[in-house]
C-alpha cells in the first residue's frame, strides 16, 4: 500500500487510471453480468479518439501559458469532409484520402502559426478565429451531404479482436511512440524547455519559433487523422462531429496530470483520463441521470479532479 502510494505520487498520470477503474467498477457492479466487459470495450473504442486529439493538445499545452489549440474540432470536421470526398466510398482511395486529411492538418497548423507569429495574436485567439474559417470551409465543401466511408476504413475503425477494438491497439502503439517523442527526442526536450521558460530556452539554443510551428502543426495533423477515423467509425462525416472534442481535448490533458502551466506533461495520463471521461458519462447514464444533471456532475467532477491533482502537485 505504501509502495503504491509512492508510485502514485511520483506518477501523476496513475490517478486518472485509478479514477477510470473505480468508475468502471461502480458501473459494472450496477449493471452486473457481462455488461461490464462490453462497457470496457466500448470505452476503449470511444476513448481512442479522445487520445488522438488529446496528445496533440498536450504538446500545445506543454508550450506554456496561453498556448491551447481551439481549432481542433473544426479541423476534425474539415478533414473528415475532405477525406470522405476524396475516398468517395472506394477502398482504393483510402490512402489518398488520408494524405488529403494530413494536408488539411498541415495547412491549418501553418495558418495557426502564421497568425501567432506574423500578426502576433495570442494563440488562444488565433486558433479560435482560425476555427471559424476552417469550420466554414467544411460547411462550404460538404454542403451537409453525408458520404459513406469506404468499407475497409469502416472495418478498421470499428472492428474488434476478442472484444478489443483494433483501432485502440493502433492508438496505444502510437501513444507509445508519442511518449518517446516527448521524453527522449530533441523535439520533446525543446517543447518542455519552451514551456518552463521561453526566454531561457531561447538563450539555451532552443529554436523556439520552429518548435512552436511544429507543435501547432502536430496538433492539427492529429486532429485531422482523428477526423478520418471518426468518420469511418460513425458512418461518414457530419458538420458537428468535432463539437465535443474542444473541451474534451483539454480536459484529458489536465486530468491526465500534465501541468496546465506548461513544461511538464505525460502521455499515459491522456489514456487514463480519456477512459475516465467516457466512463463517467456512461456511469451517469446508467444511473438514469438527466442530461442536465449529467453535464453538471461531469463539470463538478472535472473541477474536483483538477483541484485535487493541482493541490497535490504543489506539495511535492
Amino acid at each position: 500500500m505504501k509502495q503504491l502510494e509512492m508510485f502514485m505520487r511520483q506518477h501523476p498520470w496513475s490517478w486518472s487510471f485509478l479514477a477510470a477503474f473505480l468508475t468502471w467498477a461502480v458501473t459494472a457492479a450496477y449493471i452486473s453480468g457481462t455488461g461490464g466487459l462490453a462497457l470496457a470495450s466500448t470505452a476503449l473504442s470511444f476513448s481512442t479518439f479522445f487520445v488522438m486529439v488529446g496528445i496533440g493538445q498536450m504538446f500545445v499545452i506543454t508550450l506554456g501559458p496561453g498556448n491551447v489549440d481551439l481549432s481542433i474540432p473544426s479541423t476534425i470536421t474539415l478533414s473528415a469532409v475532405v477525406s470522405m470526398m476524396v475516398m468517395d466510398g472506394t477502398n482504393a482511395m483510402i490512402l489518398p484520402g488520408i494524405l488529403a486529411a494530413v494536408g488539411v492538418g498541415v495547412l491549418v497548423g501553418l495558418f495557426n502559426y502564421g497568425l501567432i507569429r506574423v500578426l502576433t495574436i495570442p494563440p488562444i485567439i488565433a486558433t479560435m478565429s482560425s476555427s471559424f474559417l476552417v469550420q466554414s470551409s467544411a460547411i462550404a465543401l460538404g454542403r451537409g451531404v453525408k458520404i459513406k466511408p469506404p468499407a475497409a476504413l469502416e472495418w478498421i475503425s470499428t472492428a474488434k479482436m476478442l472484444g478489443v477494438p483494433v483501432l485502440s491497439l493502433l492508438v496505444i502503439a502510437f501513444a507509445i511512440v508519442m511518449a518517446v517523442l516527448l521524453n527522449r527526442t530533441v523535439y520533446g526536450r525543446s517543447v518542455t524547455a519552451f514551456g518552463q521558460n521561453t526566454r531561457a530556452a531561447r538563450l539555451a539554443g532552443v529554436p523556439i519559433e520552429r518548435i512552436r510551428y511544429l507543435t501547432y502543426t502536430l496538433s492539427a495533423v492529429l486532429a485531422a487523422v482523428c477526423g478520418v477515423f471518426l468518420a469511418g467509425f460513425s458512418g461518414g462525416s457530419s458538420l458537428n462531429m468535432g463539437e465535443e472534442y474542444l473541451l474534451a481535448s483539454i480536459a484529458v490533458v489536465v486530468i491526465g496530470g500534465s501541468s496546465i502551466a506548461g513544461g511538464n506533461s505525460n502521455v499515459p495520463g491522456i489514456f487514463g483520463s480519456a477512459l475516465f471521461l467516457f466512463l463517467l458519462v456512461a456511469m451517469l447514464n446508467t444511473f438514469g441521470a438527466a442530461a442536465g444533471l449529467r453535464l453538471i456532475l461531469t463539470g463538478l467532477i472535472i473541477v474536483g479532479v483538477v483541484t485535487f491533482a493541482g493541490g497535490r502537485k504543489e506539495s511535492r
Partner: peptide, 9 residues
C-alpha cells in the same frame, strides 16, 4: 531566473 534556469528540470 529570467534568462537561464529551466525550473522544473
Amino acid at each position: 531566473q529570467v534568462d537561464g534556469v529551466l525550473p522544473l528540470w
